[in-house]
Amino acid sequence: MTEDLKSYLNKQMATVDNLHAIAITDRDGVVIIKVANQMAPDTALRQAFLSVFGIMTEQASKMGMGNNSKIINFYDRFQTVQINAHPLLLHFIADRDANTGLILELEHALADVLQDISKVVTMIAQVRRQADADLFPGDNTINHCIRSRFIY
């Protein structure tokens, strides 16, 4: 099943020249599924890098312009297009000169995939919240608030 999904993502990735990787993660940057070719730097697909967008999208939502939906970074050799598709994060890593508009369009092609995967995240978040409640039964309010940023 996951293989089918990966081959679909690979197909989508091939539609944009010089797009090297697509990753779908949860809000903390934990990878749920990813595809990449050999041009993508290995370190760019790890949680340490992908989690930065999770934090920054949260901060960018506080600029007084409503919720953040996308952040695009141009580096001297690469560009990253990162999309906040609540409860998921969608990351694209491409060459600097790749067509950014085409990459942004891929979000629509991935709508079905995102819908399926967001079910996974919601399910697991529920399980984890339940586990937390069992662990600290009397202390729901504070516990919930403190942990909420990690769960959602």
Binding site: M1, T2, D26, V30, V31, I32, D116, V120, M123
Partner: peptide, 11 residues
């Protein structure tokens, strides 16, 4: 956890 659930949900 994610990869297990993903398989489940997809099928």
């Amino acid at each position: 956890q994610y990869s297990n659930r993903l398989n489940m949900v997809l099928s």
